[in-house]
Design a protein around this nucleic acid. Structure first.
Lengths: 209, 209
DNA sequence: TGTACATCAGTGAACGCGCGTTCACTGATGTAC
DNA sequence: TGTACATCAGTGAACGCGCGTTCACTGATGTAC
């Protein structure tokens, strides 16, 4: 088969699974979790509606894969932010939080899929692993922040950092914090950065007591 | 019409609007936002599927009404908690937070409806008013907490309290905090109370600086 | 190197289902006189 | 107090639609010999 012939949509797709995941993300972004359908995804991937069955048992299966992929990209975003931030533990923690919030605002429906109750219905080792990696990174960052103050975080400290970050992300996502949503991106980021820094600094200061 | 005759399901319902809201809550609770349908609600209310149209334009209209009712009950739950709590400002704030989380766990789908992006599609003065009342109460409680320390909260302080509480609620709701979800209710409440109290006390202490 | 055959990925027609919407209707209520 | 009529709330049959699922099929790939 020549390189040119590839254009003519060969009978076998080559990487339909990957294409379905990509199409699934678009479907999720455009139609939301409520409007999500396997037929829609197939249509988007330019493939017959029965084709996905060879790769995913049902919509739940695809959503599970999407959530797993989401968690990997979620973590990746946080790490990217950290690379660009100052190296001190608090700045690193803040950068991670900004990445968390970034992701939520860039992919609202996917974010909701990842954290909303009951969906995806299927669990999978792949999903569990990806979610776990994100949590481990959070724990690692909080631990480092406490270590800088000569202590170790309690379980509740980690959860508190998580809850604050997640709460901001979800409220921004749901457009419930009016004045924050109305702001320009740069300005909003400044405000959020400030909030996270203040809070994280206080939390880490507990290590000194 | 005698009182006994009422039992025989009169042609006119009497309070179909109220009944539809009640049925809508049940539909939401059992089938979630994704499975929600007007026909399902009508069925649940024991009424023909075309009847709701006289009271709500479409599913969005009913969901808007449900969200508004949700916000009222949400606030009510917080106030109830406050009545049973100690009167000092921090305990009152913690009580409010516990009510917030209570509500989220008791009505996961409704909670998501209230705070999830994009739904309900319609806004209404009724909904705006109910949501506003809940936010005002939060602001009032935070202000009182700061006043006890001789200061006034910045806008960011209010948001921080909100974000932390909301984050906890949403993560618990989404079952993402495993060990917290696996706990018995009483124990979980103890842990959450402790977290909120620690954090709120620190935040309020900013008033002294 | 060539041939035969099993396996696999994707097709497209057909099905039944629940949904929202429409519409002519009917039963009850309220108001005018 | 009774009668006529307008209005309103709810009915149930019918419609078209998109969905998931099934199934016999076909085109491509890989393997055995």
């Amino acid at each position: 088969m020549t390189a040119r012939a590839v254009k003519a949509a060969p009978y076998h797709h080559g990487d339909l699974r990957g294409a379905l995941i990509k199409a699934g993300e678009a479907e999720l972004a455009e139609r939301g979790l409520e409007g999500f359908s396997l037929r829609g995804v197939a249509r988007r991937a330019g493939v017959s509606h029965a084709a996905p069955a060879h790769h995913f048992q049902d919509a739940g299966g695809l959503l599970t894969a999407l959530a797993a992929e989401g968690f990997r990209r979620f973590l990746h975003r946080q790490l990217q932010r950290q690379k660009k931030a100052k190296p001190d533990p608090v700045s690193q923690m803040v950068a991670s939080g900004l990445g968390y919030i970034d992701f939520a605002m860039a992919h609202p429906a996917l974010f909701r899929l990842m954290f909303s109750s009951g969906r995806p219905a299927h669990t999978s080792p792949e999903l569990a692993e990806a979610a776990r990696a994100a949590f481990d990174q959070l724990e690692h960052d909080v631990t480092r922040m406490f270590a800088a103050n000569g202590g170790r975080p309690a379980r509740d400290d980690v959860l508190e950092v998580w809850a604050l970050t997640h709460g901001l992300a979800d409220l921004l996502n749901g457009k419930r914090m009016r004045f924050l949503c109305d702001m320009r991106k740069a300005e909003r980021e400044k405000v959020v950065t400030n909030m996270l820094r203040t809070s994280f600094t206080e939390i880490a200061a507990r290590a000194r007591r």
